[in-house]
Design a protein around this nucleic acid. Structure first.
Length: 580
DNA sequence: GCCGTTTTCGGCCCGACTGTTTTCAGTCG
């Protein structure tokens, strides 16, 4: 079991403690310590209960966890509760924390609302705003009332985070319009989108210009902008449909690199860098690296990192998970790039639930500049997908061969299938059918909520089949819709390594499976990967970019990605796997 | 509450915008 439930559970409790301490006006540095610890646990690759076997001392090895919090973690693992958390819950009404999540409401305002007006829920907050009661409070005017009412609507309407692929292309369109403004010298999408995080809470844009006020104002008037939240000479916050927040930050051109570095984050990465700057007697902010009053770097990101004594770090790695130390030692791995990808290894055709014929797919692959493309239609168990019955497989393979003859194999269609892993771990095609296929993916499409032990056995049995090459979208999760299946990934990855089989990073935007944390773990086991889009229609092929982004977040190089290999080498690998 | 080639005590990342304040607090990223 990986990363795991307990890590997330305890992280959430620490976050809640931080929120409640903030409401109570506690020491801000203690609050930050709880938040740092929550993040550390959330990012921790090992299950915290494993670490805890080494006692409090082992837990204290985790950066951000000291003696006190180590004891609280042990307390939770033993009793399922943390006393401090329970005590705080008695003092802070649950609804107050929800009120604090409305933009513009922090701990001070929440406290005022609670103490003077008894606001202890979103409903009570709405009433106090609509009735005008809030105007009695110090620091409240009509403009603030309207603003908060609008933000309350947003909170109640908006789902908290969006899968990156659901907003990225809209963001790129907005970026194009921003770049067309005559005063803009440079502009880029920054933030978690630039780091290819699987979901984004908002979008961060950076622009370099000498005319900040002009650009900020023009930005708020671009076509996709539906509402303006804030507008100043250095910053604007707007909403684009539907309910997606976009922040624009503005810096002068000589600060472009420092601004891009700063607003790309992650927050943990930035704070670590600023601490290093401080230790070197320098200061790092969004305008540059400073020695006293003198700016010694800032025009490019490379320059900023160099001034801090390290190599430029690719954005997907910027999570403060050890990349800064590697950059200081000039030992960063070389990450796989989109240009190195020679073909897509999971695509569906009209033979199952895809929209296009084999011939059309070959044409699209050529347009993408691909050398090959694996056609991996479903097996029949996935009823809604109209899977290919076994008796039709010969006919299907013959058609694939016909298309290849017609195109001269440029690009080459690989005869594959995405074969369903049945509940008992057996496969949805007999071995004779699997043997005819050049590439066999296996994956789960039913009975997602088995217990961990049964699910682990199910997956192990499937990958043991000698004809199988790839475990596709291994966790079967759908972002925001379906939880990942529970399985002992440590055991599964270890066995896959022995068998020489590969795991997939499915870049389809609401799958993104393996997720980054598990992909990192699989890399540590030395597994090979395939990157794919799971495309069912032409415009899904663009999700390869997301798969590559996630691979970069897992620090993968091209040597670990099978579809960077030329066709012959890929097919050789597939044959080798079957020899065992 | 964490942490240590300035420190086991005394620090803890840094700046912008809003709305109300008439010099700044609160909030956010």
């Amino acid at each position: 079991m990986m990363g795991g439930m307990k890590n997330a559970e305890i992280a959430e409790i620490f976050e809640e403690i931080a929120d409640m301490l903030e409401f109570l006006g506690d020491n801000p540095f203690r609050i930050r310590a709880y938040r740092n610890a929550a993040r550390a646990l959330f990012d921790l690759e090992d299950p915290v209960e494993e670490v805890a076997k080494g006692g409090a001392e082992a837990l204290e090895e985790i950066p951000g966890i000291g003696h006190d919090l180590a004891l609280k973690i042990l307390e939770y693992l033993e009793t399922g509760k943390i006393r401090k958390h329970e005590e705080l819950k008695a003092k802070v009404p649950r609804g107050v924390l929800e009120v604090m999540r409305v933009p513009g409401v922090g701990p001070k305002t929440a406290k005022l609302l609670y103490e003077k007006l008894g606001v202890d829920s979103l409903e009570a907050f709405r009433k106090a705003l609509e009735s005008g009661e809030v105007l009695k409070l110090p620091g409240f005017g009509e403009r603030k009332r309207e603003r908060l009412l609008k933000n309350l609507d947003l909170v109640e309407a908006a789902s908290k985070r969006w899968p990156l692929g659901a907003v990225l292309y809209e963001a790129r369109e907005l970026l194009r319009l921003l770049k067309e403004l005559p005063e803009v010298e440079n502009a880029e999408i920054a933030g978690s989108a630039r780091r290819y995080k699987e979901t984004v809470g908002d979008l961060d844009f950076l622009a370099a210009t000498r005319e900040g006020a002009k650009v900020a104002e023009a930005f708020t008037k671009l076509a996709p902008v539906k509402a303006v939240y804030a507008l100043g000479p250095g910053k604007a916050t707007v909403y684009i449909s539907p309910g997606i927040q976009v922040d624009l930050k503005i810096v002068p051109p000589e600060s472009w690199g420092a601004g891009l570095q700063y607003f790309t984050g992650s927050k943990a990465h930035d704070i670590h860098l600023r601490r290093i700057a401080q230790q070197m007697g320098l200061k790092l902010n969004e305008y540059g690296v400073w020695r006293g009053e003198e700016r010694i770097a800032g025009a490019t990101e490379e320059e900023v990192y160099a001034a801090l004594g390290m190599d430029w770090i690719p954005p997907p790695m910027r999570e403060d998970l050890g990349e800064i130390e590697l950059a200081q030692k000039h030992a960063l791995p070389r990450l796989v790039t989109l240009e190195e990808i020679r073909g897509d290894l999971q695509v569906h055709s009209k033979w199952s639930d895809g929209k296009h014929t084999l011939e059309e797919l070959a044409r699209f692959a050529a347009e993408m500049g691909y050398e090959y493309l694996a056609v991996t239609d479903h097996s029949p168990a996935v009823r809604v997908a109209g899977g290919v019955p076994p008796e039709k497989m010969k006919e299907r393979i013959a058609e694939i061969q016909r298309v290849n003859e017609k195109t001269g194999g440029k690009p080459y269609l690989i005869a594959g299938a995405e074969v369903d892993i049945l509940p008992d771990g057996s496969l949805d095609y007999p071995d004779e059918v699997l043997a005819e296929l050049e590439l066999v993916l296996v994956s789960i499409h039913s009975r997602f909520s088995m217990d961990e032990e049964t699910m682990t056995k199910r997956i192990l049995r499937a990958i043991e089949n000698p004809y199988v090459h790839v475990l596709a979208h291994p966790t079967a999760r759908l972002i925001g819709k379906r939880a990942p299946v529970k399985a002992d990934w440590e055991k599964i990855f270890a066995r896959m390594k022995e068998l020489g089989k590969a795991v997939e990073i499915d870049g389809y935007y609401d799958r993104m499976d393996l997720p980054d944390v598990l992909a990192r773990r699989a890399r540590e086991y030395g597994l090979m990967f395939t990157l794919s889009t799971d495309a069912h229609q032409k415009d899904h092929l663009r999700f390869m970019e997301l798969a590559v982004g996630n691979a970069q977040r897992a620090w993968l190089g091209s040597e670990q990605v099978l579809n960077t290999r030329p066709l012959k080498a890929l097919l050789d690998w597939a044959r080798e796997v079957r020899k065992g």
